[in-house]
Nucleic acid binder design. Structure first.
Lengths: 247, 247
DNA sequence: CGGTCATTTGAAATCGTTCAAAAGGAGTGG
DNA sequence: CCACTCCTTTTGAACGATTTCAAATGACCG
């Protein structure tokens, strides 16, 4: 199996064989399996390891005082859960599994050592945090300015590109483990309305969603409806100047 | 005048006199004045300087294809506009002034040098980016899960605490330069609805908003309504262990 | 085959938008 | 100080989007 972290970071710069080897060793750290609907980390925790998702989906969430759950991000293979913990005293939100999950628990010292030892890897990790921030901002403006139909279309586009970049898109199809109610917690809409909006996307022949698979029938149409522009994902090898040349 | 960047970063760790001096010199870099409604940086730009806001308010925004403007963040004195540009090839959104603005244009090399020379400052800057990311996530869940009344209440709370931390709150009053239509672009609501929601907040004796001033009459009530918890602002000196002891 | 959870449907109630217009500042030039 | 203008705030009313509640249907698991 290709390593999803390496695949993702290579969107930024080309690694040397040595870089890749170090990153692969990192992912071979203590591997942990979780089932669906468990917490990887809980709000208030001060974790010592960084969790790298190898398989499955997770989400960042908060429980509001009135009991509802707000999902603020989805995380898929290649995503690092909590790099921020080098600095922040405690988690201000929780991370929970949405499917059975396989994560590598990377001791934070090892990650720091690696970043210190290779400028290329250090920059790539930095790039990665900045892209995560950009995704968070895009999420906010997605939810703030679009109607629910376009929000869903936008989310479908984003997850398609993100999974594609870690080798998890099969042509125009990705796995889609989310229930409509989880989708509602993410886009800020009721389950009923999510359901009706998905039907509308289906009627317009943009997507097909069944059997935990999302099949994108008309990517351009979906992007138009969502007003989606992929620039915030920064997949354009911003760090080319750092490229290693021994691949 | 106290330096807003120092005040802000000191929420994380206590600086030495020397640290403070370096930071002060940074803010004395080329100072630029802008009037309201200008762009500080435009989407697609590749800036070479980092802009530090010394006075005034700015916002991050994108223009959507249908012409509407989505505001995804407000920026106030002490905020650094675009640290991300060390890594990313180009801006994926614009930054525009909302009031007349005074910014220090810090050459990126100087900021990097400073970060290299002091672990304390380096960590404080890192902390700052992570808090910005947390603010972006909170923004998303604010807009996704709350009704417009609570969204406004939440934004009022956030800006109050942020301005307070850079010494710009006068007891329970902060300056509030935003028009209701700008507020609408930020919280994802029509101007009319923003107006009616503000009236409701007024009727409930939570805030008073007039003459470009926001007067908070009942902070606890406002926080309850907003389901506001300040933990995401990480004002609790997470980096205490790095504290200098010569203040 | 029953039980549980996810999806779908209908209808009423609520929230928020849109359009159009009036009222209220704040600044400018005479 | 007034008249004029521009911009923001406020109001009313109709319309549209979305939620809520309640119930039916479908899918999967043991």
């Amino acid at each position: 199996m290709r390593n999803p972290l390496i695949l993702k970071l290579e969107q930024f710069t080309a690694f040397s064989a040595e870089d890749k080897q170090s990153l692969r060793e990192l992912s071979a750290s203590k591997v942990r399996s979780l089932s669906a609907k468990e917490d990887v980390i809980r709000e208030g925790d001060k974790p010592h390891d960084v969790n790298l998702i190898l398989e499955g989906w997770a989400c960042r969430y908060k429980i509001l005082e009135d009991g509802r759950r707000a999902i603020s991000a989805f995380m898929v293979p290649g995503d690092l859960c909590d790099v921020r913990m080098f600095i922040l005293k405690q988690m201000d939100h929780s991370i929970g599994s949405l499917t059975p999950l396989i994560v590598a628990q990377i001791p934070s010292e090892r990650l720091l050592e690696l970043a210190d030892s290779s400028t290329r890897i250090c920059r790539a990790l930095w790039w990665n945090s900045l892209v995560e921030e950009a995704i968070a901002r895009e999420w906010a403006s997605n939810i703030g300015q679009r109607d629910v139909l376009a929000r869903l279309a936008h989310l479908f586009c984003e997850m398609f590109f993100r999974l594609q970049s870690v080798g998890l898109a099969d042509h125009d199809t990705i796995s889609w483990p989310l229930t409509q109610s989880q989708l509602g917690e993410a886009v800020g809409a009721s389950t009923v309305h999510v359901n009706r909006s998905i039907q509308e996307l289906r009627d317009r022949n943009l997507v097909e969603l069944s059997g935990r698979k999302l099949h994108i029938l008309n990517l351009d149409g979906l992007k138009d409806l969502a007003m989606f522009s992929a620039s915030y994902l920064h997949r354009d090898r911003d760090g080319q100047s750092l490229d290693a040349n021994d691949g």
